[in-house]
């Protein structure tokens, strides 16, 4: 029984931490973010199992996690208010070829990262970008100016332009 509560607590705690950190941490693999993602399971694994390495405990923990994820997805789909509470809203980073500093600062996204995302979308100049949006999943979507092309850039920023 305790395992169920522990999984729920850890799920809520990690969700709250990631929600606090912001969208960029969701899909970043910059060194410090990679370290964070590697360490989190280390911290919680023992708290979850409590030296109980039985298959029963593992099944209870896994099904609890799957159930939470399923119920959360159902509630997010069904109720817009819950969806907005659980997920971050998109942040506009570039509008009609112009960087929007408030959004960039809030999300800690550098101009280099936007340019890198543009390059991955096959766009050379910022003037050719209608919208650059940091989506709730942490990826930057680039919408080309004057056209319908939309590029969802995988959030592996920092591997291109920074070199």
């Amino acid at each position: 029984m305790e395992t169920v509560f522990r999984v729920i607590f850890v799920y809520a705690f990690v969700w709250a931490c990631l929600r606090t950190l912001g969208k960029r941490e969701l899909s970043q693999l910059a060194p410090f973010e990679l370290v964070m993602l590697l360490l989190i399971p280390q911290f919680f694994s023992r708290a979850l199992t409590r030296q109980d390495y039985s298959m029963t405990n593992s099944v209870v923990a896994a099904t609890t996690l799957f159930s939470i994820v399923f119920l959360t997805s159902i509630a997010s789909f069904r109720f817009a208010g819950f969806r907005h509470f659980m997920q971050a809203n998109p942040t506009v980073l570039v509008r009609q070829g112009q960087f929007l500093p408030p959004g960039l600062r809030r999300e800690r996204i550098t101009a280099d990262e936007i340019v890198s995302a543009m390059h991955k979308a096959g766009i050379e100049r910022i003037e050719d970008v209608a919208w650059a949006i940091l989506e709730p999943d942490g990826k930057i979507a680039i919408i080309r100016a004057g056209g319908a092309d939309v590029h969802n850039v995988e959030a592996d920023r920092g591997t291109g332009a920074r070199q």
Binding site: I74, F77, R78, F79, A80, P90, V92, Q96, G97, E127, D128, A130, W131, I133, I143, A145, G146
Partner: peptide, 18 residues
């Protein structure tokens, strides 16, 4: 060149039926 829209395109509303 630049889109005249003041905000990015939004998703349409679909009845959330499970």
């Amino acid at each position: 060149m630049a889109s005249p829209n003041p905000s990015p395109p939004r998703a349409p509303s679909i009845e959330p039926k499970i």
